[in-house]
Amino acid sequence: MARVFNPKRSIFVPATGGHPKNAEYRIAWGAERWNSLVNVTKVQMVYNGTVAGMLSPSFPDETLDQQAVIFALHLLSDKKYGINSKDIKDVLVLNKVTNQLDVNTLLDSLEKEIEEMTIDIYDSKKNPLSVIVDIKLQEQFKLEDSVNAFLFRVHIVPVK
C-alpha cells in the first residue's frame, strides 16, 4: 500500500489515561494524496514509536490529553512549531502548576519521564537500539486554570 500522508511537521503528546504504556498522539501537518496533493492536519495514535495508521485516536473529554492535542493543533498552525526528523521530535506536555517556584522540579520530572519513555520505546523494538536522549525545553506557555504547556525538543542519538 502506498503511503498517502507525508508529514512535514509533527508534535507528539504522551497519552495518559486508559492508553497502554508508550502511547502518544502524533499531531502532524503535511501533504496527503487525494486526487492531488492536499495539505492536511492529522492526529494519529503512536504505540512504541510506530504510527497506528488505521486506528482512530481518542482522548477522554475534559482532560489534559484533550487540551494538549487541541493546543498542539494550535501550535502547528503557527509554522514555527513542530519538526519532521527521525532523530529529533517535539514533545508537548501539559501540567497543572499551582506554584511557580515548583516549575524547575516539575521540569526535571517531565524531562526524566520523556527520557525514560523514549529509551523504553527504542528498547521495545524487534531489533533493540540503545540511545542517548538529550532534552531541552523549547518554550513554556501559560494556559487557563493553572495549566502550563511545556514544549520539549528531544534529540535521539543511537549508541553504536
Results as ranks from 00 to 15, higher is better:
Asn84Asp: 07
Val69Phe: 05
Thr16Asn: 10
Gln44Tyr: 00
Val13Ser: 01
Val69Ser: 07
Met117Gln: 13
Val46Ile: 08
Ser130Val: 06
Ala31Phe: 09
Glu113His: 14
Arg153Trp: 00
Phe12Ala: 00
Asn84Cys: 06
Lys21Phe: 11
Phe5Arg: 02
Ile83Val: 09
Val43His: 05
Val154Ser: 00
Asn35Val: 05
Pro20Trp: 10
Asn104Ala: 11
Thr98Ser: 09
Asn95Lys: 15
Met54Arg: 11
Arg9Pro: 06
Asp123Ala: 15
Ser36Asn: 13
Thr63Cys: 12
Asp78His: 03
Lys136Met: 02
Asp61Ser: 15
Val38Gln: 08
Glu115Tyr: 07
Leu129Trp: 00
Glu113Asp: 15
Leu101Met: 10
Gln140Tyr: 04
Val69Lys: 03
Ile83Pro: 00
Ser85Lys: 05
Trp34Leu: 14
Lys160Gly: 07
Asn84Ala: 12
Gly53Asn: 11
Asn6Pro: 00
Val97Met: 14
Asp123Arg: 15
Ala149Trp: 08
Lys89Val: 04
Asp87Val: 07
Trp29Pro: 00
Leu76Lys: 00
Thr63Gln: 10
Leu73Ala: 13
Lys126Arg: 10
His155Gln: 08
Lys160Trp: 03
Met117Trp: 04
Val159Pro: 02
Leu55Gln: 13
Val51Ala: 08
Lys112Arg: 14
Val91Glu: 02
Asp102Arg: 05
Arg26Asp: 06
Phe152Arg: 05
Asp87Gln: 10
Thr16Gly: 12
Gln100Pro: 01
Lys86Cys: 02
Gln44Val: 01
Ala68Asp: 08
Ile135Lys: 15
Ser36Lys: 15
Thr41Lys: 07
Glu144Gly: 13
Asn104Val: 08
Ala28Pro: 02
His155Glu: 08
Ala15Asp: 01
Val40Asn: 09
Val147Ser: 03
Pro7Asn: 04
Val4Arg: 10
Ile83Ser: 00
